[in-house]
Structures are given as C-alpha cells and as structure tokens.
C-alpha cells in the first residue's frame, strides 16, 4: 500500500477531485492533488453549483440512479464537513402553471402537499403568493464554496499535498496512477463527453428570509433559488446544450430575475453580486462514468449532480483501485487503450 501512497495523483480539485481524494484518504491512500487554481474558485464548475442535495426532486427528469445514490449524499457531506443544512426543499408553481406541479408530483415521491397556509408556516416570506406546493422534507442543501473549502482544509490537515499547476495527465501517467477529475476540460480525452451550459446569479437581499431551496416550476424555464445565509441567494440555472463557458445572455439573466421576482417581489431590490457561467460535463444519459485508459482513470460526467453524486463516484473509483470492482458507472465500452494492469 505504501507504493500506492506515493504514486496516486488526483488531477482537478473541483467537487469530483476533492471527493475522490477524501475517499482515498479514508482508505489510507494519500494522493497528490493537482489543480490550476490555488484555491477552490471560479475555474471549476462546482464553484457555481446550486448545492441542492435534492435527489427526490432531481429524479423527476433523471435516471433512477440519481435518486438511489443521491440519497446518500447528505450523510456523506455531513460526515466530512459541517456545511449541510437539513431543511428540506419546496417546489412551487404559479397558479397558471399548476399542471406542471401535478406532473412533478406524479413523477416524484417522499413529499407532502402543502396549501397556502402551510407554505406560509414553512416560509413566511412566500405568504400569499402560492396556493399549493410540494415539500420534500428529507432533502438538504449546502454552500458549495464552503463545502469545497472544508474538504480541502481537512485534506491538508490529514497530510495531502496540493500542487498548484497545470498538468498533462499523459505526462503524469508515466510515473503515477492518475485519477483525472478535470470535468469539461477532459473533453478532448473523453469520447461522448459534452458540455451543458448553465447560467446563474448570486443576489443579496436581506429583506427576504428563506431557509430552504425553492424550485419554481415553469413549462420552459424551471428555476431554483437556494439560500446561502446572511441574505445571500443563489439563483439558477439555465440548461443550454453548449460547451461555452462564457456569455451569460440577457435573456437568461432576465428569466432568472423574473423567477426571483415571482417568488417574492422584494427581490426586485436585491443587489446582484455575481453572474456566473460554466459548462457542466455530461455523457449521453446524464450519468457519471468511470473510464480506465492505461494508467489514467477518468471520473467525469457529473452533469448537474456534482454535490449529489460525487461521493458515490469517488467511492466507485476507490473501490476499483483497491479491489478491482467495476461498478455500475464503470465504462467498459469505447476504451481507447488496451487493458493494462495498474502498474505502480
């Protein structure tokens, strides 16, 4: 195991890389972590994430696996950080979009149907605006940036080395086992990986007090708002089939702001702190994959489920490393290099 310790490199310190490093350390393997950024920051997609740990809601338009593995996320984050908020989440629709609420209820489980009074009781600042809602009490949320910082701090305390540089996985693979967690930047090396552009906003609005994520259903533009504490809210997120990491469009920002305004008109007075854009890495079924290519293990495709599925993805990577287990997300097709045994 000692030889292992010195030769595992995790490339990328976004949510995937940090979760993999955390799982490695939990099993006594101490990797080096290499990232272009000195600290968690805007270069990684997870910096812009919503941070909803909402498997029950997400499965409305995702594969069953998102629910199955996503249910484990809150416990994992609770164990490794202290940033998880267990407040459940709310799903709402304006009266004209009640059909969407019905549809959402039909496709999901583990919710309570709330009337206007019950919504007010849960979130007084939503009072009088919504006549029906769905409450998923088992869901949680976290602040992605705090979560990334917390994981990194803990890893450093545990003795993991972080190296701040750009690196080529093929060069590293010459004398180490590389776990490539670069997200969309690994696109040239991963057949079938595509980008799904997301735009989001961060607002400060101390007038509005929300304690849990709220999703506002809409036939074309479903949106969510996640409280970050201290009157700060994350408002997200668009989904555009594009690998562009730039240009938040006026239309997208306008639609996001409209949704915030619909949730509570006081958001009209909010301060816009940030406008974020990034590209989520995704495969055709929008589920993550692990792909072995020689001395490189690529773990990618978390799509919009970074914080929800990275813990499971990380466990699967380490299960493979330690025991050769080829899990559900292990990709046995499209291997560009021949089968080799891990040679350390």
């Amino acid at each position: 195991m000692n030889a292992f310790t010195e030769h595992v490199v995790v490339l990328g310190a976004g949510v995937a890389g940090l979760c993999v490093a955390t799982e490695l350390v939990a099993r006594g393997i101490f990797p080096k972590v290499i990232d272009r950024q000195l600290e968690p920051g805007p270069e990684s997609c997870s910096w812009w994430a919503g941070g909803m740990l909402a498997p029950y809601c997400e499965v409305e338009s995702a594969e069953e696996a998102v629910l199955h593995y996503g249910k484990k996320a809150a416990t994992w984050w609770q164990k490794h950080t202290d940033v998880v908020e267990h407040q459940g989440s709310l799903v709402l629709a304006l009266d004209r979009d009640q059909a969407d609420l019905k549809r959402f209820a039909k496709r999901t489980q583990a919710y309570d149907v709330l009337d206007a009074d019950e919504i007010t009781e849960l979130e007084p600042d939503l009072s009088g605006r919504f006549s029906r809602g769905l409450y998923y009490r088992e869901e949680a949320h976290l602040s992605p940036r705090n979560a990334l910082r917390a994981l990194k701090t803990k890893l450093i305390q545990q003795g993991v080395t972080f190296i701040n540089q750009s690196a080529d996985p093929d060069m590293l693979a010459k004398d180490s086992l590389v776990i490539d967690c670069r997200g969309i930047k690994a696109k040239p090396d991963l057949d079938g990986l595509r980008g799904v552009k997301g735009e989001m906003l961060i607002l400060r609005c101390p007038e509005v007090q929300l304690t849990r994520p709220v999703r506002l259903l809409h036939p074309r533009i479903p949106l969510y708002i996640v409280p970050r504490g201290d009157g700060v809210y994350m408002l997200g997120a668009t989904m555009v089939e594009s690998s562009a990491k730039k240009h938040a469009s006026v239309r997208s920002v306008m639609e996001l702001l409209n949704a915030a305004y619909a949730i509570n008109p006081a958001f009209g007075e909010a301060e816009i702190l940030e406008i974020g854009v990034d590209s989520r890495p995704a495969f055709a079924n929008n589920l993550p994959r692990i792909r072995r290519q020689g001395q490189i293990i690529r773990a990618n495709g978390l799509y919009r489920h970074g914080f929800l599925l990275a813990p499971t993805l990380a466990k699967m990577v380490v299960d493979y490393l330690e025991q050769g287990i080829e899990s559900e997300w292990f990709d046995t097709t499209n291997l560009t290099t021949t089968e080799e045994t891990i040679n350390l």
């Binding site: 595509r194 555009v240 690998s243 240009h247 469009s249 055709a284």
Partner: peptide, 17 residues
C-alpha cells in the same frame, strides 16, 4: 437554435447527436 450557441461551435456536440 439558440443564437448564442452557434457562435464558436460550442453546441456542436448536440448537433452531432
């Protein structure tokens, strides 16, 4: 076609699909 996506071939994965 979202006009923004056509600029620098950023949407080409979807087109290929």
């Amino acid at each position: 076609l979202r006009r923004e996506a056509s600029g620098d071939k950023a949407g080409q994965d979807f087109w290929r699909l």
